[in-house]
Amino acid sequence: MTKDTTEIEIHLLLEALYRKYGYDFRQYSEAHIRRRLMNRLALCGLQTISEMQSRVLHDREFAAVLLQDLSITVTEMFRDAEFYRAIRQSVVPILKTYSFVKIWHAGCSTGQEAYSMAILLQEEGLYERTTMYATDFNQRALDQAREGIYANEQMKEYTANYQRSGGREAFSDYYTSNYNMAIMEASLKKNIVWAHHNLVTDSVFAEVHMIMCRNVLIYFNSDLQSKVQHLFRDSLTHGGILCLGSKESLRFSGLAEEYIELDKVQKIFKKKYPGGE
């Protein structure tokens, strides 16, 4: 069977991007990569993906643009309000038994979910003893996350999400409005460590009590999902909590047996202790 030409071109382009710059999208789901590359092709005035490949190799700025195209930067505060409700109910009581809490938020993008978790932990009286490592491979997104400045117009949606998630305070207390920008409160930032980490190519980041990685794995093929799930398993303490996106699962990892399901719908898991529970 002859392969589709575009498919071959995409493989070669991803190979070029990896060999030249070290960013590895070769095991991402192809339909999503193809969609983003075709969008860029329509915008950049080139005729074929092969021409884009040549440009990627010779033009560092173009490569940087493509890298932004391929990374997942869609996020919002308190996305899936029910998830945060479940965290308050099922996970906070567990975290409260620890004298200090280490959380790894993998694939934090522009930081909205990290700030959401910081707000929740502050309200639950846990934030002062928490260190949150928020990581991403996209340096530009990470810089934005560290700044914690968002468009004011998004705050309406975030406020509605926050209220649905069981938030108890006035959401406007968590940011300062300045013209059309909302600046997140410094008190939310102080225990967040923003760091560059690539789930595809880097290894264990730290030993933590909780990992949050939501709506990242859906972009990976099953082999890569399994590899990253092993990385998470190796990073969690016994009894540690794993939070996935609502459509994600452990099924490609072969690790389901090593976890207890704390919330089936919200995809919250607890790593078993060596003896079982």
Partner: peptide
């Protein structure tokens, strides 16, 4: 739909 005829989800 992926080339291997599996389904993908995205939050794009």
């Amino acid at each position: 739909v992926e080339r291997d005829e599996t389904l993908s989800l995205s939050i794009d």
